[in-house]
Write a protein that binds this DNA or RNA. Structure first.
Lengths: 186, 186
DNA sequence: GCGGATTTGTCGTTTATACAACAGATCTAA
DNA sequence: TTAGATCTGTTGTATAAACGACAAATCCGC
């Protein structure tokens, strides 16, 4: 395999762009963020943006994938076990994302975001299960991951409907017994 | 005048290097920080470092000048007036610098640091006095700036000797009446 | 002290980024 | 609706930064 590693300038520039986008997302709505805003914050030329990303939606997708993945991974390494705390913390990550980003997008981009989050959750749960159940058949673990994924994600959607009443923590703690039952059955 | 503005890549790279150096200064002693450490943190090539700075001492000088200047400027725009709070806050900036940097340097670099801090303080005080006393003769203001500068800087040196007994805030509050008297006389 | 390892500082070549100019799209106020 | 302004996406050319190799200096355990 020809392992031609990518130029450090590329990695640096992508990081600068993504970090700037995340930074700006905390200040403005997604629809109000322009490419110029991002590139100014990142201290790079606007043309360089297009060297790395198709458009702002492409950037959004990649940021969601990478950042959510990193955040969740971090939570896993913190908790390391599929216990109640792990669930609560993962659920809080997801609901934070829901809160901070999905409301910012127009043109039905909520669907795209949902797709990305679910896909990442699946990867994460799969990894986690592999660590805990090294002996099991992989197929079973994959299936479990899918279920957990939908469980957590569905819960976050429900939570948004319910959000006036309960904090994410309270909400997921109610749901955990059911989720755990589901896992035990597989 | 031919105002050839500097390439944005240069500004960005310098900022990355300086920020990384500051970041690392919080984790290691100055003498243990290598160029490689800095460039790795900054995500730039080691050779690029030498494009912008002579060596690590050159970097230190420039960081001290710029960062201290920026910090102090920020305090001024916060306070805007040469009152007690302004003095306390400036003094805290300076003593923080003393604490966090001068102890890290070997080879008598404390003297260099002292020189830089004093020079910057002088600039700052002069600016500030100009704002408050637009009518006065500039020469008088410059002189006052020099005196204030030595007053504050000397106080910070004294504070270091005294530091087991009083916080920077307590210390400078004791000294303020004398400083103010000094100003009023000019 | 010695010897291996790390760090420093420099150089020529390759490549990613800046620039600035452009047409077309989208927004906004009159 | 129209006109002015802003934003988008693309291009050819100039330049900062990456690479990697190098000798010299410095560090550090023996």
């Amino acid at each position: 395999m020809t392992e031609s590693k990518t130029d450090p300038r590329v990695l640096r520039t992508r990081k600068l762009i993504m970090d700037s986008f995340i930074e700006l997302s905390g200040k403005k709505e997604f629809k109000d963020i322009t490419i110029k805003d991002i590139t100014t914050e990142a201290m790079i030329n606007r043309a360089t943006f297009y060297y790395h990303f198709e458009d702002i939606y492409d950037l959004l997708e990649k940021v969601l994938s990478e950042v959510l993945l990193v955040n969740l991974n971090y939570d896993f390494y913190q908790n390391d076990e599929l216990n109640e705390e792990a669930f609560v913390s993962i659920f809080e990550s997801v609901t934070n994302f829901q809160k901070s980003l999905s409301s910012r997008c127009h043109r039905g981009y909520e669907d795209t975001i949902a797709r990305i989050i679910k896909k990442q959750l699946e990867v994460i749960f799969h990894k986690m299960l592999l660590k805990q159940h090294k002996t099991e058949r992989d197929e079973a673990l994959e299936l479990t991951a899918v279920l957990l994924n939908w469980g957590i994600y569905g819960a976050s959607v429900e939570w948004r409907r319910d959000s006036k009443k309960r904090s994410p923590e309270q909400f997921i703690k109610l749901a955990i017994p059911y989720l755990r039952t589901g896992i035990d059955r597989i």
